[in-house]
Amino acid sequence: MKVTRFDTLYQLTFFPNLFPINCYIIEEEAELTLIDAGLFSHGPKIIEVIKSLSKPLTTILLTHGHDDHVGSVDILKKEFPHAQLCISARDSLLLNGDKRLLEDEGMLPIKGGISNKIKSSPDRLLYEQDTVGSLKVISSPGHTPGSISLFDERNRFLIAGDAFQTKGGIAVAGMLNLTFPFPAFATWDKKRSLNSAKQLADLHPKLLAVGHGTCITDPYEAMLKAIQKAENTF
């Protein structure tokens, strides 16, 4: 595991060279928020980093319900029972293994690994414009129906889950990158993911942090190029 710090954000990267899976710790004045929970096997290392920061973990926040983002939720909740588990109201269904589509979601099947083994129930369901500490919730459906991104209003850092990837070059969710195609294979609705990407770029973030790949500083121009490429392809 590799740990990289950007101001108040710690990026925890597992398998950085082969199949990077990122979790993030956001440092508040007196507490910590964990964004995403990797695979089941990642739990002990995540716990080790959290404890090394000497602040209480008060929130476990999930960007979406895929296996590689929720895998160690149960072990984390066991270690930090007072930490509030948060996920979007829509993707809380995926956390229970429920892949049904809702009435306004069309006919495209939900893709990607969806576990029915998570025992922990969400303590809080999140909606657009909710806040969690310094983070604002941005609805960014496409990769999954209930994907969210988090925008840190202190430093304009954007944690976008799988709405973008940067492994193999920056790409919008659903855009096939042959050097790292897995996020595209797991994307539910390309058109919705493109709309979400445009809304995220409009935030003009100072840093883009994603589920798979390195962080990008001053990412606006790179995000626009990825959006243009997706528009031409989709």
Rank of each mutant, 00 (worst) to 15 (best):
S72A: 14
S72N: 10
S72K: 07
V73E: 11
V73I: 15
D74Y: 08
D74T: 07
D74V: 07
I75V: 14
I75W: 02
L76F: 11
L76D: 10
K77Y: 11
K78T: 10
E79S: 01
E79R: 03
E79H: 00
P81C: 10
P81F: 09
P81D: 06
H82N: 12
A83Q: 10
Q84L: 09
Q84G: 00
Q84H: 03
L85I: 05
L85W: 09
L85F: 10
C86G: 06
C86A: 13
C86L: 08
C86K: 06
C86P: 05
C86E: 07
S88K: 02
A89H: 05
R90I: 15
D91H: 07
S92F: 08
S92A: 15
L93I: 03
L93N: 12
L94C: 07
L94P: 10
L95Y: 06
L95S: 06
N96C: 13
G97D: 08
D98E: 12
K99W: 03
K99F: 01
R100K: 15
L101Y: 08
L101R: 14
L101D: 13
L102R: 11
E103S: 12
E103R: 10
D104V: 14
D104Y: 13
D104H: 15
E105G: 09
E105Y: 06
G106R: 00
M107H: 15
P109Y: 04
P109K: 11
P109G: 08
I110Y: 00
G112Q: 08
G112S: 04
G112F: 02
G113S: 09
S115T: 12
S115L: 12
N116D: 13
N116A: 08
K117C: 08
K117G: 06
K117I: 11
I118C: 08
I118M: 06
S120A: 15
S120Q: 15
S120K: 09
S121E: 09
P122T: 04
P122E: 01
P122L: 02
D123G: 15
R124I: 03
R124D: 00
L125E: 14
Y127D: 13
Y127Q: 13
Y127G: 12
E128M: 09
Q129L: 03
Q129F: 02
Q129T: 10
Q129N: 14
T131V: 07
T131N: 02
T131C: 00
V132T: 02
V132R: 05
V132H: 02
G133T: 08
S134W: 08
S134M: 11
L135N: 14
L135K: 13
K136L: 15
K136P: 07
V137G: 12
V137K: 09
V137D: 13
I138M: 09
S139K: 11
S139A: 15
S140M: 05
P141D: 02
P141E: 02
G142M: 03
G142W: 00
G142K: 00
H143Y: 06
H143R: 02
